[in-house]
Amino acid sequence: MDSVIDLSPELWVATYETLYIVGFSLFFGGLGGLLLGIGLYTTRAGSILGNSAVFGTLNIIVNIFRPIPFIIFLAAAQPLARAVTGTGIGNSAIIFTLSLAAAFGISRIVEQNLLTVQPGVIEAARSVGAGRLRIILTILIPEALGPLILGYTFIFVALVDMSAVAGYVGGGGLGNFAIQYGYRQFNPWVTWAAVIVIILLVQAVQFLGNVLARKALRR
């Protein structure tokens, strides 16, 4: 118990690092996933850019990368992280790899939520002469905004989970804190302190996501 108090500066640093890693990953991965998801949605047969070759390719790429357990993906993608960020270890490498892995997962969530938009609504936009990009930006995304916000909230939680293994490649964060000071030093109090911070973090973000989604859905 005392050790938790002793370690509290490290705990706050770890919390900050988790937010830092998850925040940037959510931004880059979210953007990549949004584009990939829109790509999957729009190239599906019968959709506004229907192209079965492109859809098939995107679909297979997502299916290949999405199921790889993150800790394995982290190791496998290390050379790529090194090539892009200049380092294979630390928070930058983690953010890169996490963004990449998350983009594949997010793309499916985006695709699913866009598919809930009534095709007739898209057709109505086409019938007034709207172009494809305008339809995506001014109809498709606003129509699916509520579920998209909930989807991204879900992804935030998933990213907190995935970021816990950052310590394996020299990154920080709450996962690393719990393993380094709690698990490896046989100090369950420290582990539990990390767990409690994660629970509070997740609760706060889920609450925020629900409020925003309710606003978007007007109910």
Partner: peptide, 29 residues
């Protein structure tokens, strides 16, 4: 797309933009 500005269309399921107000639905075209 230019031609479609000259042809209005209405639908069985109305197909209104649910995320937009009545005003913005009519303003969209």
């Amino acid at each position: 797309r230019k031609l479609r500005l000259d042809i209005g269309m209405i639908f069985q399921q109305f197909n209104l933009f649910n995320a937009k107000t009545v005003w913005n639905n009519v303003a969209y075209p």
